[in-house]
Write a protein that binds this DNA or RNA. Structure first.
Lengths: 144, 144
DNA sequence: ATGCAAGTTCAAGCCGACTTGAGGTCAAGA
DNA sequence: TCTTGACCTCAAGTCGGCTTGAACTTGCAT
């Protein structure tokens, strides 16, 4: 496959694929002239990368997970750590969501007058809150 | 209060406070010489900002929530939208966490040989996954 | 009167994850 | 053979949210 096909099949733009290769996240199986050729395996790898990203691993972390030999040799302990981290994030986000929903429904003229909202505020102020989340990324964009 | 006190009480560094002021997120109540003076209300506002950030609003979005008049006049519909968004994120993260935990526990020699893992991969590949999360921020760091 | 810590401004830098643009190369179809 | 268009490289730009550094000004204590 050349890069365009990988791009099409994975939904990842060529520029990103080149970037990933440069970072050592994926490897091309050779060149046809100038052009990178990829084997089908790269798609699986890209899926794995996608999962890793979604789980909050940085590209560098992901690169380390694929041991030098190339195949995914994932550190199970790291996974557990990440899962726990995710758990904490989820709890925070759940609290946030509840807070938002309440604020949206609350009849107090301004949120500041609502005791429940003030409680959330206070909780947030006293260090409980901290999960900064990001907008969902574009995700697979087959033919943009 | 001058900036150092606000910083201390909110856990937000002075540089960030100045940045927030520049962005219109907070306002100083005047100057004492060169020095910004802040009223206690700014702490509440900062807490609100913290909540907004934690809920995934950008600084610009937050700035808009505080209507031009200054007091938090939050669009309830936006809150609901954001809460729903948060809900979706939470669901994805939960799935991720389960996947990670399974991968960590799974006995297959490599994850690629585990049917469950491959199922996750496939799900991810086919567009389900996309929540990019960020590491939790430093959060209130009272006296660094 | 003077020293100095704590403030100030402004411009520039940093981070991660990419994207964009200019200019170059090459294989395959007409 | 020649054109074409898909690919290439490399440098630089983008974005959000800050931080850092240099050079400067103040209020207050000595």
């Amino acid at each position: 496959m050349d890069i365009a096909e990988v791009s099409e099949r994975s939904g990842i733009p060529p520029s990103t694929l080149r970037y990933y290769e440069e970072k050592g996240l994926i490897a091309s199986s050779g060149r046809h002239g100038l052009r990178r050729q990829f084997s089908a395996a790269v798609l699986e790898r890209l899926a794995l990368i996608g999962i890793g990203r979604a789980a909050g691993f940085s590209l560098d972390e992901i690169a380390q997970m694929f041991a030098p030999d190339g195949r995914p040799h994932i550190d199970r302990q790291k996974l557990t750590v990440k899962a726990d981290e995710l758990d904490r994030t989820i709890r925070k986000l759940s609290a946030m969501r509840d807070g938002l929903r309440h604020a949206a429904a609350c009849k107090a003229p301004t949120h500041m007058e609502c005791p429940k909202f003030r409680r959330i505020l206070k909780a947030a102020a006293s260090g409980g809150v901290g999960a900064r989340i990001k907008k969902a990324p574009p995700g697979p964009r087959a033919t943009p």
